[in-house]
Design a binder for these strands. Sequence first.
RNA 1: GCCGGUAUCGUCUAGGGGUUAGGACACGUGGUUCUCAGCCACGGAACCGGGGUUCGAAUCCCCGUACCGGUACCA
Length: 492
Amino acid sequence: MTDASIRVRFAPSPTGYLHVGGARTALFNWLFARRHGGVFVLRIEDTDVERSSEEMVSGILDGLRWLGIDWDEGPEVGGPHGPYFQSKRLERYRAAAERLVGEEHAYYCYCNPDELKAKREAAEGGEGWRYDRTCLALTPEEVAAREGARLPRAIRVRVPEGATSFTDLVRGEITIDHAHMEDFVILRSDGHPTYHLSVVVDDIDMRITHVVRGEDHISNTPKQVLLYNALDHPLPAFAHVPLILGPDKRRLSKRHGATSVTEYQRQGYLPEAMVNFLALLGWSPGDDRELFTRDELVAAFGLEGISGGNAVFNPDKLEWFNNQHIMRMATDELAGRLEPLVREAGLWHDDLRDTQRAWWLSLVDLLKPRLKRLPDVVEQARPFLSDVLAYDEAAVHKYLTPQMAGPLAELAATLAATTPFDAATLEPVIRGFAEARALKAATLIHATRVAVTGKAASPGMFDTLALLGRERSVARVRRGAAMAAASVPRQT
RNA sequence: GCCGGUAUCGUCUAGGGGUUAGGACACGUGGUUCUCAGCCACGGAACCGGGGUUCGAAUCCCCGUACCGGUACCA
């Protein structure tokens, strides 16, 4: 088949928000489609009416959009093989199920679900029990009686003797003996299809060529293969990707902390970083590259690179990716993403958009390598954006000592006279100033830092002063001098 | 229980019949330096166990073990 004919899909069930596992599956499908110039379909599997909801659908769409995973067919964009909500395709499933009954690949089952459940539980340990085919053995009279009594009926597949094999692109050939497969329900008595039916009917209708999904579906695949065969339709290619686990190697769940993409968005992760990180969870380009742009991922992606084992979600590495992507992002773009956060913190003023724009960009540049997450900008930019300094008590005590009062006061005067007020000019001036007073430059700089930022850590002092400007620098150093003079020497 | 899958540093992984088993995160130590971050260098750290095949197994095969998944009128 040609590349352009490749069609893949992501088919989430809207019973929760988009979690990282689903996002990773969506990403693999999307990367595969984009790599081959194929089509990426988004389909909502909302046949479980009890657990599905509209809000969840929009949450999932938002999550995908945030990650930059766009779909060629699906909700909101439509497409030639819609509708893309399973709840709107019920007739398709019913027709398929009835067809299978007509062709004797399936049969009606009038068994009461509660009774079946009881039988199941009554069986040895409740495990391994298979449907006893009560309804397959029904005589025409018995069937007529049940129909006459208007008993609700489900449709079950008549699983033949034998075994089913299929080739998984990640794991090779997989075979399962039908002895371990019961006559599974494909249409519930309420007329809704079960997953096995709807997924197969839709994948056929939507011309899906490659089914790329989580490993949790691997055991279900033989059932679906049976359905493809019964429906007389060729199989798509299957690729089952490993699952994402928590640090305890258990399947990632809420108790491991944040599991929804929205949560990571909220915490200040870049979608670029999330995508990069997720792509490398269970997939490898085959070489030593780690940092990828979206386009580079598209160019490098292939199903062959998917590994077999499950992968533990490592938040430390995600954070590293985030910092790396922040550093690589164009300053003006980063500034744009930072703005809402700064605004929210009450530190924004509109001059930063026009007259002060260059200054704001310089600040962002300075902070770039220091941001692990976007919100880190608030505390780090605060000394630059506000004149209300929150002095770190320990830092004040350590560096704004009485003996620094004099030097700081003099430094303020020196700064007031330094021109131009830029880092290159300030550095020799300040170092010379310290030397002239037999002070270690470091000592003076530390004191100046606390005076000017209130903290023990900040960007380089000369850059900091330059960015602050002469006026604010002088005022803050003066104030620092006063604080130093007023501080009580450590008693020992 | 039964069925299926997986197994390389703590974690993500590359590799794969003969390699000093490579990279990344994290960690540790240095360096750059005014602090922090970043950056650079260095370091510790792995082929689940047992059999077999082979001149040679971490790699191929079998068994075991562990873990994950499935075993529904959930998806």
